[in-house]
Computed example of a mutant assay.
Amino acid sequence: MRLGIDWGGTKMEIIALGETGAEIYRKRVPTPRDDYRGCIETVADLITGAEAKTGQTGTIGLGIPGSISPGTGLVKNANSTWMNGMPLDKDLEARLGRPVRIENDANCLAVSEATDGAGAGAHLVHAIIIGTGCGSGIAIDGKAHRGANGIGGEWGAIPVPWMTADEFPGPESWTGHRGAIDRWCSGTGFQLDYQERAGVLLKGDEIMTRKRAGEPMAVAAYEAYVHRLARALAMSANLLDPDVFVLGGGMSNIDELYDDLPGAMMPYVFSDVYEVPIRKARHGDSSGVRGAAWLW
C-alpha cells in the first residue's frame, strides 16, 4: 500500500493506493494554519487512521507547497510560510519512526498525471497548478525533475513574459517580486483583477457566469487572464518544449481555456507549427495527493 499526503494551505488530505493504483482510502481535514507542530501531528493522525482503517502499513509520500533545500536540508519557498526554515523530513521521520519521501506539490501533480493521468506515457510533462496560487512541476519519464537546487519547475516565481506597458511592473506577489506568474495567473489573481475592474470580489466561477452572460468587465478580466497564462505557457514551450501541458487547480475547470489558450500562445512560440496538447488533470484536485503516493 502507498500512502500519499497533500499538505495544503487550507486542507490536508491522505490517500491510500493499492498495488494497481486503485484508491482504497481517503480522508481530508483542515490544515492547522501557522502551527508547524500541529501540522506534523495532523499528518501522524492521518497515517494512523488510514492504516487502522485498511489494516495495512504503507509507504509514505508527502507533497508540500515548497521544497527541501539540498544545501540546508530545510524547507524553502513554501507559501505556507510557517514551514519555511524547518527540517520537515527529519521531524516527520522522528515522529513516525520510518522513512518519508517529500516532494513539491506541483511535482506531485506532474508525477501523478505522467503515471496514469492526462500525461501518461509522455516523456516530458509540464503540470501547472492554477488555484489559490500558481506553480508548476516537471515530470521526465514519470519522475519529478527537482533540479540541482530543488527549484526545478518554479515557474510561478517568474514575471509574466512579454509584459505590456500598462501591465508593468505588475502587482507584488508573496515573494516580494512584481508581476509574477503566481500572482497573475492564479485563481486569486483572476479574482483580484476582476475586483480591480468591477469593484467587487467574486469567486472565479461567479466571474465566469458573468463572462458567459456577456458582462464587459468579466469578459475583459477573462481575456486578460488567458493572455497572461498563454504568455507564461509559451515561455515554457520555448524553454522546455514539453510533450503535454496538464492543468490542475480550480481554474483548470474552466472549459473555455482549452479552446482559447493555444491560439493565444502561438504569437509567442518560437516555431512555425505548435501542436502540443493542453489537457485538464485526469485526477482533478486529487492528482497531487496521488502523486505523493507514487513517490514510492
Rank of each mutant, 00 (worst) to 15 (best):
M1C: 08
G9H: 12
E19L: 07
E19S: 14
T20W: 14
A22L: 14
A22W: 09
Y25N: 10
D34P: 00
D35Y: 13
V43N: 01
D45S: 10
L46S: 08
G49K: 04
G49T: 06
A50F: 05
A52D: 13
G55C: 06
Q56D: 12
T59K: 12
I60Q: 03
L62I: 13
L62Q: 02
G63Q: 07
S67C: 12
I68D: 04
S69H: 06
G71A: 14
L74W: 13
K76V: 14
K76A: 14
S80N: 15
W82Q: 14
G85K: 08
P87E: 12
R95W: 11
G97M: 11
N104Y: 11
L109E: 05
L109N: 04
V111Y: 09
E113F: 06
A114P: 03
A114C: 03
D116K: 00
G117E: 02
A118F: 03
A120H: 12
H123D: 14
A127R: 03
T132S: 11
T132V: 10
C134Q: 00
I138E: 03
D141Q: 11
G142V: 02
A144H: 01
H145V: 10
G147H: 08
A148M: 13
N149P: 07
I151S: 05
G152Q: 09
E154H: 11
E154T: 05
I158K: 13
P159N: 01
P161W: 00
T164W: 10
A165R: 13
F168A: 14
P171D: 06
R178T: 04
A180M: 09
A180Q: 13
D182T: 05
R183I: 01
W184R: 11
C185E: 05
S186P: 03
S186G: 04
G189F: 04
F190L: 08
F190K: 00
D193H: 01
Q195L: 11
L202Q: 01
L202F: 07
E206V: 14
E206L: 09
M208F: 13
T209R: 14
K211L: 05
A218P: 02
A220C: 12
A224C: 12
Y225S: 12
V226C: 04
V226Q: 10
H227S: 15
M235W: 06
N238A: 08
L239S: 13
L239H: 10
D241L: 10
D243E: 15
F245S: 04
M251R: 00
S252V: 02
S252M: 07
N253M: 15
E256M: 04
L257S: 05
L257W: 01
Y258K: 05
L261M: 09
S271Y: 04
Y274G: 10
E275I: 15
V276S: 06
P277Q: 04
R282S: 15
H283S: 06
D285F: 08
V289M: 01
W294G: 07
L295V: 02
